[in-house]
Design a protein around this nucleic acid. Sequence first.
DNA 1: TATTTATAATTGTATGACAAAATGAAATTT
DNA 2: AAATTTCATTTTGTCATACAATTATAAATA
Lengths: 229, 229
Amino acid sequence: MVEFKIDSVTRNTLSRQVLEKFIQLLMEGDLQPGDKLPPEMDLMHMFDVSRPVLREALSSLETLEIVKRRPRGGTYINEKIGSSPFRAMLALSINNVPAVIEARMTLELGLVTLAAEKISEDQIARLEETIVAIANTVDDDYGALDREFHRIIAESANNPVVSGMIDSLLITHQKTDSLITFREPDITVRHHSAIVKALKGRDPVEAFKEMYNHLQYVREKILANQKGV
Amino acid sequence: MVEFKIDSVTRNTLSRQVLEKFIQLLMEGDLQPGDKLPPEMDLMHMFDVSRPVLREALSSLETLEIVKRRPRGGTYINEKIGSSPFRAMLALSINNVPAVIEARMTLELGLVTLAAEKISEDQIARLEETIVAIANTVDDDYGALDREFHRIIAESANNPVVSGMIDSLLITHQKTDSLITFREPDITVRHHSAIVKALKGRDPVEAFKEMYNHLQYVREKILANQKGV
DNA sequence: TATTTATAATTGTATGACAAAATGAAATTT
DNA sequence: AAATTTCATTTTGTCATACAATTATAAATA
């Protein structure tokens, strides 16, 4: 006998249907960033659902950072893609250290390539500042500078879709940092300098190579400690 | 006079606070994937909020694919990071074609690098199958095969955090595909073959180079048409 | 033992009411 | 006349309660 027990994938609750409808409207361009939605009272009549159901859907949209609501002010479609949803999603995998590091590698390798195409002189200057600062630290406590370096590169890629994610991953960066027992600032400086040199030359392939080299080193360093746990 | 009108960033509604609390519990490991949450009745007393508020938070968690709910069955913390939230977020940027393409480039460049480290013989074989299939298409309608090629590579990187995203981006891939007016299967086959060759050789840098070369071609092809719009 | 049937627990939905906040207009003061 | 204050109204935020729908579990039956 054949058993059927589907239901899953996404159970069709009313609030889910309303949510899907909103996303569909966005995809088809009927709703545009910046648009103001009708008040909840109107919306619940339009969708023919109760207010709690509608509000569950709106709440989800707000969590996804697709809309922004203000008491009395109304509900608006956001302009840019957000980062915090990704951060929340990441919370699930937070303890899977290798996966998180690899995810970070994936993004950074792609980002540095795009950065090489687009980075500005000002951003390069800021990168160099972090390198100098790391070289001058005395207590080996340059985690924040290190993250800043990577953040500037992500920013240089200047992509609204991906840039949100990197913030979240750098937060986990901070977490994985704590797994590093000893630091080698000279190596970090050497690697970072090589990356900047490639970026200066606007050489995507070279920038990638140096970043890959660097991240391999970082990954091994973190995972080596991780094993012992 | 100094004006203050903060409020934003994230307005602290009750449901938002509950949501944040759940995420915090996840980050700190007090909640683990697979865990079953208490029934809503208990939760509302624990958080001291009304049921609609609690349900708004749970609804958001479900939208983020952090939990899964079943009538009468209860609420469970998911095991893996989901993809559909990202899809929803992408809906916002769907009309920003260059940004979406670049996002796809970012991910794929990183993924192909990791794939070179980890891809299995079986996956390589499947990649080769898609190449043969594309070479044999007569009507130039090989969009699905093309996407399958990229999907297998993403799968080969075998990263639970990133793999979800690529699905969403490949959906937009489908959308951007429609912007291509004419196809050049011979070029696609040549590029794909070069990528597979690098993957076979387990050469991350070479795999990256070939993928970058390929995606540059794809990007130009799409954007060239986009300009005329 | 296996199957079917009830029971009860739990999520899903609806209604109604009120609180809180803030916008915009009206009234007041300077 | 202009600026400020006050107030009414709209809209989101929250609560309480009730009932429907679903299904896991236990009980009853074959």
